[in-house]
């Protein structure tokens, strides 16, 4: 079990190919205010996955007809850099990127207080610089940080992580190697402070019990991820205070 293509994914001691325990996150790094031009920006890394997010707005869109009279319109683009994958990826948006842009936008809609800015648009641009599994969840985490960094009022911060199933074992924060051999991949995004799961997908086969257990694992980790987000935002303002 857990061994595919000559690679041992779960050892007899229950450790993963990179030495992590099943419920262990990769090394997480977060930084805000990394770009000059954007109103808000963030760089988030989960192990080898590096994702940059930038927010522009609320602003008046060039296409005036897309605005709403009672709230801001949210626009999200999830995009992978051509050099982010092992084989070069065409920069033209793939069907996958179109779907993930939608899924990430819908994960943010319920936390952005968009009714404060009618007739405007808030743009969120997510660029995957290096893909090593979990790019949508890392992208959503980066987007949440960039929105907060832009000073856009949020009901809560969103964090995200994927749970995978390998040889029947549930593992947290799967990387690319694990994803390639996993029986299932379950990305979860949530705003723990308001108790809402806002991104939820399952690709693969799982029982109801496994889904419940995987959700517990993910939500537990997301609480920690959101704490890290808060810490990064706090330290930014502490830094500004010292100037």
């Amino acid at each position: 079990m857990g061994k595919k293509g000559g690679q041992v994914l779960i050892t007899e001691e229950g450790l993963r190919h990179d030495g992590r325990r099943p419920d262990e996150l990769r090394q997480v790094r977060m930084e805000v205010d990394v770009l000059e031009n954007a109103d808000g920006s963030a760089l988030v890394e989960f192990g080898g996955t590096k994702v940059l997010a930038a927010v522009y707005g609320p602003r008046e869109p060039i296409q005036k007809y897309i605005v709403l009279p009672d709230k801001a319109v949210l626009r999200v683009r999830y995009h992978m850099a051509p050099f982010s994958t092992s084989e070069r990826k065409s920069p033209a948006p793939s069907r996958r990127e179109v779907e993930l842009s939608k899924v990430i936008r819908e994960a943010l809609e319920s936390v952005v207080l968009s009714d404060l800015y009618p007739r405007t648009v808030i743009d969120v641009f997510i660029e995957v610089l290096q893909a090593d599994g979990g790019t949508r969840t890392t992208g959503l985490t980066a987007a949440s940080l960039a929105l907060a960094d832009a000073g856009i009022p949020l009901r809560a911060l969103v964090g995200a992580v994927a749970v995978g199933k390998i040889g029947g074992t549930l593992v947290l924060d799967i990387d690319e190697v694990e994803d390639n051999y996993a029986e299932a991949d379950m990305p979860v995004g949530a705003a723990p402070d308001i108790g809402l799961v806002t991104l939820f997908q399952i690709n693969g086969v799982m029982t109801k019990e496994e889904v419940a257990k995987g959700l517990d694992m993910a939500l537990n980790a997301i609480e920690r991820i959101v704490e890290m987000e808060k810490e990064v935002l706090r330290s930014k303002y502490a830094r500004v205070g010292e100037v």
Binding site: E106, A191, T198
Partner: peptide
């Protein structure tokens, strides 16, 4: 398979 779709959360 599973997909949450739409703007709010659960």
């Amino acid at each position: 398979g599973l997909q949450k779709t739409g703007p709010h959360g659960y």
